[in-house]
């Protein structure tokens, strides 16, 4: 049975894994903007590692880290160590932890399959977009399907708002431990990163909202679709490049969190 200490170490590895993934997503976005490459979502970025030297080893480490991160988020939601209140805001925060945990479990599974070579590498660089459309179609087939998809849109919008709040306030820096305050540029990196994530989440919320309105699953989309929407705007090349840079800075901040963030995983049934 894994101990709390090992689970905490894995969660910190998860921040590093998340950092690597976002740096890659940012890199693909900047490359697409400046050199005509293709944007990629988180799953696509993970898939891109499969063909690299030591790819399976790297993917196994990424998978373990993302699993650790997911476990941390899920135990946070269940055990509530931060004593988050039971009001609407608190409940939304805990729901957000659950959604984040599940999302990172899916990413961990993607990385693990590629590491073990039990799954074929998806030729698409945005399998997350296809998943978004598939799940939207499944929801639309349910009773009150359009309302369900609309609820997803609202959920993603709330997440976008939370990311935007973090970017505005910058109080996430208090999660870092240390005797001295973190340097100003660290907070700036994080604020730009959270701001870029807020923008991407906002566009994804819009895509789900459109799918709910039109009742067409093909209108839904994920991170890669959101980045492509930016690229198609007037001045889109620079919008995409700046957003990609922001996402890469979020990844860099995640690497800092891996080293300095205060966290402790409290597994159920362990001391």
């Amino acid at each position: 049975m894994i101990s709390d200490a090992n689970a905490t170490w894995l969660a910190k590895l998860g921040f590093a894994a998340r950092g690597v993934v976002y740096i890659l997503v940012g890199w693909f976005a900047v490359d697409a903007a400046l050199r005509g490459g293709e944007v990629a979502d988180n799953q696509g970025a993970i898939g891109s590692m499969a063909d690299e030297a030591f790819g399976p080893v790297l993917l196994a480490i990424i998978a373990a880290g993302l699993l650790g991160y997911a476990v941390w988020r899920l135990t946070e939601a269940a055990a509530n160590p931060e004593q988050i209140g039971r009001d609407v805001k608190g409940s939304l925060k805990r729901i957000g932890h659950v959604v984040s945990g599940i999302a990172h479990l899916i990413l961990a599974w993607t990385a693990a399959k590629l590491a073990l070579k039990t799954g074929s590498r998806d030729a698409a660089v945005s399998p997350g977009d296809e998943s978004a459309r598939d799940w939207t179609a499944l929801l639309l087939d349910q009773p009150a399907g359009r309302l369900l998809v609309g609820a997803v849109a609202i959920g993603v919008l709330v997440a976008a708002f939370q990311q935007g709040q973090k970017a505005w306030r910058g109080d996430f820096i208090r999660d870092l431990r240390g005797d001295a305050p973190a340097p100003g540029y660290v907070c700036t990196m994080g604020r730009i990163g959270y701001g870029a994530r807020a923008l991407v989440f906002l566009i994804v919320a819009g895509l789900f909202g459109l799918a709910a309105w039109s009742a067409h699953a093909s209108d839904a989309g994920g991170v890669a679709d959101a980045l492509e929407k930016l690229q198609s705007q007037p001045g889109g090349k620079w919008l995409l490049a700046l957003t990609g840079l922001g996402l890469a800075l979020f990844g860099a901040y995640s690497l800092i969190e891996a080293r300095f963030r205060r966290l402790h995983v409290d597994l159920p049934g362990t001391d």
Binding site: D134, L138, A217
Partner: peptide, 10 residues
């Protein structure tokens, strides 16, 4: 017959 089938067919 379903939105999922529609997505697949498209």
């Amino acid at each position: 017959a379903s939105h999922l089938a529609k997505l697949q067919t498209e």
